[in-house]
């Protein structure tokens, strides 16, 4: 084999081996691992029957701060595609070895649009231990136009692997994009209604939602299932005196005690779920639609 030929033939063989794993060649679905539920949902919608999507985080943890065990990491390492969110989401991916070539950073196309957060406050919830939200805001998918770009990154990765099913994959992606952009449109309309309306977020996860739809959301660091403590209540009281707000967005259903005390302060509660884990009922779209419906109550009442 001459040098020129071998220069391309040998790597081509290697690349083919990498691209078309034994599973794919045998007609088995592509094994796709994701780091959160929205990406798992996008992959399932786009890949359909041609992909086997695995999102291994337990239902009761926040996947952003979860760390998989070695066996689960082994699953990620063997996957045909590893769909990551980027923007510093799932810091465990920086502490384990994952094949670079099989990783798809879904937010890479808009990395210049990441939002930086400066805080040195740490807190704890669930079994994951102390954590901080300092660095880069990562709930990118709450801006559904960004979510559609993340879905597009998944579509490109899947279509390069599922060459025989390219048209089906494209059709699936177009349908998902339409659904996402339809919700995006609804949120744009809401944001346009009253852009200055002050809102309160119970957790620092609504940065992309606020920026994407021109919402005025100030964020605290409360957990829906925990009493924030007297100091936090006093801080909120002081904050509200300067920034009149009548609605707080919660990532999950808050404790009735918190709801009642907030109402005494003139603040109503609504759930705007980031849907980072698989919902008990419905799917990503139904949860997002519910979020939009919940938010529209705020804006319809605000007129």
């Amino acid at each position: 084999m001459n040098t020129r030929m071998s220069l391309y033939v040998l790597p081509a063989i290697t690349t083919l081996t990498l691209l078309f794993s034994a599973n794919c060649l045998a007609g088995k679905p592509l094994k796709v691992y994701t780091v959160n539920y929205p990406l798992a949902y996008f992959s399932e919608r786009i890949g359909g029957e041609f992909v086997d999507v695995v999102f291994p985080a337990p239902a009761d943890v926040d996947p952003a701060f979860w760390t998989p065990d070695e066996e689960t990491i082994g699953g990620y390492q063997k996957a045909d595609l590893i769909i990551i969110n980027g923007a510093g989401y799932a810091k465990w991916t920086q502490k384990v070895s994952l094949p670079l070539m099989r990783q798809v950073n879904t937010s890479k196309s808009f990395k210049d649009e990441y939002i930086s957060i400066e805080t040195n406050v740490t807190h704890r919830h669930g079994p994951e231990g102390d954590h901080s939200h300092a660095g880069t805001a990562f709930t990118t998918w709450l801006d559904l136009s960004l979510a559609s770009r993340q879905a597009e990154a998944i579509y490109k990765a899947l279509s390069s692997k599922l060459t025989d099913q390219k048209s089906i994959v494209q059709k699936n992606f177009e349908a998902l994009k339409t659904d996402l952009l339809h919700l995006d449109e609804q949120l744009q309309d809401l944001g346009d209604k009253k852009p200055a309306l002050p809102l309160l977020g119970s957790h620092p996860i609504y940065q992309y939602l606020a920026r994407g739809y021109g919402l005025n959301i100030s964020m605290v660091m409360w957990e829906p299932d925990e009493d924030p403590g007297e100091q936090q209540w006093r801080n909120l009281q002081t904050f509200v005196e300067d920034h009149a707000t009548s609605w707080m967005l919660w990532e999950d259903s808050p404790r009735p005690e918190s709801v009642n005390r907030l109402e005494e302060m003139g603040i109503k509660s609504l759930v705007y779920s980031p849907c980072f884990n698989r919902p008990d009922e419905g799917d990503f779209l139904t949860v997002m639609q519910q979020n939009v419906d919940n938010l529209s109550i705020v804006f319809s009442g605000a007129d």
């Binding site: 081996t17 070695e70 990491i73 082994g74 070895s97």
Partner: peptide, 24 residues
């Protein structure tokens, strides 16, 4: 390097697993 090197050189693991955590 990254795990891609093992795929590229078609290196097989005779005993154990690929490195998965930092320090392995």
């Amino acid at each position: 390097t990254t795990l891609d090197y093992l795929d590229f050189r078609q290196l097989e693991i005779k005993n154990g697993n690929p490195f998965s955590l930092l320090g392995q």
